[in-house]
């Protein structure tokens, strides 16, 4: 009980009545995920973040994005707050996703803005609606 103020993970809700506070005290209040208590605990989080981070390299940068969104509190709080591994993975995911997003969006923008002037004949072959037409991918409608 005395240690509580010094330990940031054991925030007591000050407004709660004392009888409730004694119950609530051992419970963690600072959850690492955005879903709070519905989400994962910190132990599970580390494994989870690691897995998502690794799978992100299989051309799945959205997993990195989800990693960042899901562990948003980890990103926001100072680094000593949570498990160091957890934070490392989340921050790396953030970096990975940013790099990916920058590269991909610059390519896509160049492609769509530059158009046929820049790419010439290749553009027609690469642009998606032509490709879809060629292979008959639009079964709908």
């Amino acid at each position: 009980m005395e240690a509580a103020p010094s330990n940031p993970t054991h925030n007591i809700i000050s407004t709660a009545p004392s009888s409730v506070a004694t119950h609530r005290n051992p419970l963690r209040v600072d959850w690492p995920t955005v879903d709070g208590p519905l989400g994962l605990s910190e132990q599970e989080s580390v494994d989870h973040a690691r897995r998502f981070f690794k799978f992100g390299f299989l051309l799945l940068p959205w997993l990195w994005a989800v990693n960042c969104l899901y562990f948003w509190p980890v990103l926001r709080r100072p680094s000593s707050y949570y498990h160091p591994d957890l934070r490392r993975y989340v921050v790396r995911s953030a970096i990975g996703f940013t790099v990916f997003a920058v590269i991909l969006s610059s390519w896509a923008l160049t492609f769509s803005v530059g158009g046929e002037h820049l790419f010439g004949h290749v553009w027609d072959k690469l642009v998606m609606y032509n490709v879809a037409e060629k292979y008959g991918l639009t079964g709908w409608i």
């Binding site: 991909l104 896509a108 769509s112 158009g115 998606m128 609606y129 879809a132 639009t138 709908w140 409608i141």
Partner: peptide
């Protein structure tokens, strides 16, 4: 794809 075709969105196949 149908939406892309309908609105003629110039997205390349790799990105897509």
């Amino acid at each position: 794809l149908t939406l892309i075709q309908h609105f003629n969105i110039p997205i390349d196949s790799i990105t897509f």
